[in-house]
């Protein structure tokens, strides 16, 4: 690796879950991704996180990651601040996607009396997710996923969904596509009409998504759906009477989203034997501004 530029450290949150897999995949794809010097390291403390400019929140159990963070001095607050900082590249997979939701944006799961509901860390604005919407382990599955922005876009990505969460809804949202969701309109007026783009509307794979954003205008950074599951794989809608309000049916199948330097996937690229999603995140989100 070249030492010409400043080293970039990618942290992989190592409180619980499949963090070693992410480190292996990142390490594998780093040399070809740039001339910068990049490394991926496990993160278990605020001090370790302080050295990082990017973070992966891996799959695992979101409740465990949350409670271990909460019981590790200084960790939870440091993580929340990191995840919300628009300058930091952050990617959440599965459980990590749940934690990337907005603070009051996590539904599903059982609420234990006397215990706080699972909360998000606010990585992607307006993202609400539903835990285990696809069901338990017997409903876990693999599906070939078309992701137009990856290299070799005609080669489907082997996406593995394990007790996966789903997007419940995205606010603020693109109004004309979602007229049925009246509750959304009140929160939407500040956004441009095309804040959410479906894969079909994306530019060709060769071009990158619209240049995103100075940190100060993060509220205007569009959320882009990078991949949507074919209809036959999509989960049933969650109940509409939860504290999250009504779900947006059109969003349920969106399994890979990006907002600026933030990305979420409800599937597990780190189990797929295919490093293209890791490479995409490193190139677009971690190195994008360089």
């Amino acid at each position: 690796m070249s030492s010409s530029s400043e080293p970039i450290i990618i942290g992989v949150l190592a409180l619980q879950g499949a963090f070693a897999e992410h480190i292996a995949y990142l390490t594998h794809c780093l040399p070809s991704s740039s001339t910068s010097s990049l490394t991926a390291i496990p993160i278990r403390s605020p001090t370790e996180l302080a050295s990082c400019s990017a973070l992966v929140i891996p799959g695992g159990e979101s409740t465990v990651i949350q409670s271990v963070a909460d019981r590790t001095p200084g960790m939870l607050a440091t993580l929340q601040a990191f995840v919300r900082d628009p300058e930091k590249a952050v990617w959440g997979t599965c459980a990590g996607m749940i934690l990337m939701a907005e603070e009051e944006g996590v539904g599903g799961g059982k609420v234990i009396p006397g215990r706080e509901r699972q909360r998000g860390w606010g990585g992607i604005e307006g993202l609400k997710v539903w835990r285990n919407l696809y069901g338990n382990q017997l409903e876990s599955f693999e599906a070939p996923l078309v992701i137009p922005d990856l290299s070799n876009p005609t080669e489907p990505f082997p996406a593995i969904f394990i007790r996966a969460p789903a997007v419940h809804s995205l606010h603020p949202r693109k109004l004309e596509d979602h007229t049925a969701s009246s509750s959304a309109s009140s929160s939407a007026p500040t956004l441009s009409a095309s804040s959410i783009t479906s894969p079909a509307q994306l530019p060709t794979p060769a071009s990158t998504p619209p240049r995103l954003a100075s940190p100060s205008s993060s509220s205007r950074v569009p959320v882009i759906a990078l991949a949507t599951l074919p209809a036959e794989y999509q989960p049933p809608p969650p109940p509409s009477d939860s504290h999250l309000g009504a779900p947006t049916v059109e969003d349920l199948g969106k399994v890979m989203l990006r907002q600026g330097k933030k990305m979420v996937t409800s599937f597990h690229p780190e189990l797929s034997g295919d490093v293209r999603v890791h490479r995409y995140w490193v190139e677009k989100c971690v190195l994008g501004e360089k």
Binding site: A18, E142, A143, I162
Partner: peptide, 18 residues
């Protein structure tokens, strides 16, 4: 897509790690 493939079965164990 496959449900119950070996990748899906080992995948849950990988989420339990740590």
């Amino acid at each position: 897509g496959g449900a119950g493939t070996f990748g899906v079965k080992t995948g849950l164990a990988q989420m339990l790690k740590g």
